[in-house]
Nucleic acid binder design. Structure first.
Ligand SMILES: [Zn+2]
Ligand SMILES: [Zn+2]
Ligand SMILES: [Zn+2]
Ligand SMILES: [Zn+2]
Lengths: 140, 140
DNA sequence: AAAAATTTGTTATATTATAACACTATACTC
DNA sequence: GAGTATAGTGTTATAATATAACAAATTTTT
């Protein structure tokens, strides 16, 4: 087996699997109730798996929603800083991968010259599909 | 009285006062326990005040901390998008006011060309004072 | 195989936030 | 200024999110 990618534990796999199956971010207790049939019985089992999956970069936490989403960038085996767009209407979340924006953020220094080792950025707006629906509705 | 700045209600004033007195962000239940002597007895009274204060821009919510901090920019009477720097070590939070960064964020469009109407950005690092302390400690 | 590190299972509890409802104060309209 | 709409209050109960603590089992390293 590949040295770097130590395989995931049973619970970690179950939790990751469920998160990856969902297009939208999922909440911890929703994960719990959906994986109980697989033998995960209590919150700590879910939260531990989440912590680990975040640590290794397989998933990210969407801070403003207390929810969790699979990483869509690269081959998902390095933790990294995140930029999300979040639809105010349907709450769908997309991970943004914009080199120029990343560079701006990476290079940012505050007044003291402090170098930051991480960031989290969430954009809020109306996604294309929701915007179209709104336009549809005004027609009637 | 000034038309625009309708004065705050009693509970709103009490909560804002407490938040403004603190350099660091404060948690809802810490606010509660600290203002009980002023007649605020239960969580909903705090959360309602917080909601209103956020809505009018007097305070901001620090998403990654579930905490609340007074706005330090302008005269605090317009809600606005936020950029914070958060110290990993002492958890102190500063509101960043950097026109160039603001412009970059304001102008950002995703692949679909979606225009975002809001964002929240949190930078994580070690503040100057904590960094100095760390250097101090390695000397001994 | 022994020791160390990680993961698991479990119970209980802490922390953060909202629902629901009756009531009061304030602002707005005529 | 009476009537009405809007916003705020006080209260109880409960929902939703997250962690502490501890014993047992598993996996990895030595
Ligand atoms: Zn990612
Ligand atoms: Zn949408
Ligand atoms: Zn501000
Ligand atoms: Zn610090």
């Amino acid at each position: 087996m590949d040295k770097k990618s130590k395989s995931l534990s049973k619970n970690q796999k179950i939790v990751l699997d469920f998160i990856q199956k969902n297009k939208k971010p999922v909440k911890a207790y929703s994960i719990l109730s959906n994986v109980q049939k697989k033998g995960i019985n209590a919150p700590p089992q879910v939260y531990r798996a989440l912590d680990k999956l975040i640590e290794i970069g397989k998933i990210h936490r969407v801070e403003s929603q207390n929810s969790f989403v699979a990483c869509k960038i690269s081959n998902c085996n390095t933790p990294h800083k995140t930029v999300f767009s979040i639809c105010n209407s349907c709450e769908i979340v997309s991970e943004i991968n914009d080199p120029k924006l990343f560079k701006n953020l990476k290079d940012f220094r505050d007044k003291d010259g402090t170098v930051f080792d991480g960031y989290n950025l969430e954009f809020f707006g109306t996604c294309k599909s929701c915007k179209n629906k709104q336009i549809e509705n005004t027609k009637h």
